[in-house]
Design a protein around this nucleic acid. Structure first.
Lengths: 190, 190
DNA sequence: ACCTGAACACCGTTCAAGT
DNA sequence: ACCTGAACACCGTTCAAGT
């Protein structure tokens, strides 16, 4: 896979995500990483101060990737704000169905245990929430209602990422609920 | 606190939740539990097969408590289904604001790592989802729309439990969004 | 610059022995 | 029945030495 002779930090991070996805958070271990990469532990400690430093690097990478996804979805397509929001939900379900981002749950767990990680994840949350709020304003919802609808939608997104098992919502159903949330405004605002 | 001479399983479980809430998941350790309870490790292994057994017992207890809360809220009060759903959301925010149930996040993390835990948590999720669906039907939403609204609301509940930092939603805002979700029906059903 | 290999520290687990 | 105390195993971390 990687024919380079000496490893880079990126190699360690990639392999760590691989282990996280395949074997869960407790498989992110120095010895298992070394075995997977065919080196001894001392090598790891040349690239990283400790295991916590590797985890921090993983989170930084996740944050960059998440931000990139958002911006690509927003700018790369010609979707209306409403359609864009719907597509965000569909993406989450798709990834979830493919057993994709188990890493999300693990990251949120780190977040509650480690204050440094918590700040990083919290910042990322606020960034996405602000983006959602902008989209909802663009969909025609005004005033404080935009932020509350955004907060609710964002909580639902996070919750869907966390819930185990088969998705309880078909795409059509999801569209219906989202429309209801984006429509309720004209009545409730003021 | 506990003046009994010999410890019970319940004593260990209670102290474990205490450590989980105060110091995070990684503080749920045999040696720290022993220090907190003033005994040596051998005592722990008389009450439990291993650390995993203690964690399983914690989850079983959490599940029973969550079910009890639901039923109490539903039967003990004279709330309409709509008000009941709103009160569930308010409870989650309240607990969250008090730094209450950090355990929720930790439990969901265990859930993604340990298949046994995963099944237990998944069962609990389905139980609560079924309850929510019933309430939404009682609120006048018919057919498949009831289940999809329930799934969305439940995801939002879970998401709010996970999100770090200050709540982005005031109670009044939350009521507005929930009303929108429960109102959209008459238009979208069929 | 990047890695080996051996040592040490920490914490989960076992078990014979005590009361 | 419930717990002590000592031992062992596992994995994170360090570090002098190699190329």
């Amino acid at each position: 896979m990687n024919t380079r002779q000496t490893l880079t930090r990126a190699d360690w991070i990639d392999m760590a995500f691989d282990l996280l996805a395949r074997q869960g958070a407790k498989a992110v271990r120095v010895d298992l990483l070394c075995k997977a990469l065919g080196v001894t532990k001392g090598s790891f400690y040349w690239h990283f101060d400790d295991l916590a430093a590797l985890k921090a690097a993983m989170i930084a990478q996740w944050r960059r990737a998440a931000a990139r996804d958002l911006i690509e979805t927003a700018t790369g397509t010609r979707l209306s704000p409403r359609e864009l929001i719907f597509s965000l939900f569909k993406d989450v379900q798709q990834r979830h169905a493919n057993g994709g981002s188990i890493a999300e749950t693990a990251l949120r767990q780190w977040s509650s245990a480690d204050p440094v990680v918590q700040k990083l994840v919290h910042d990322a949350d606020n960034e996405r929430l602000a983006f959602l709020t902008t989209q909802i304003r663009a969909a025609g919802i005004t005033g404080g209602a935009a932020r509350s609808r955004a907060a609710f939608l964002y909580a639902a997104l996070i919750g869907m990422e966390q819930l185990a098992g088969e998705p309880a919502l078909t795409p059509a159903d999801m569209k219906g609920v989202i429309d209801a949330i984006l429509r309720g405004d004209e009545i409730a605002s003021g």
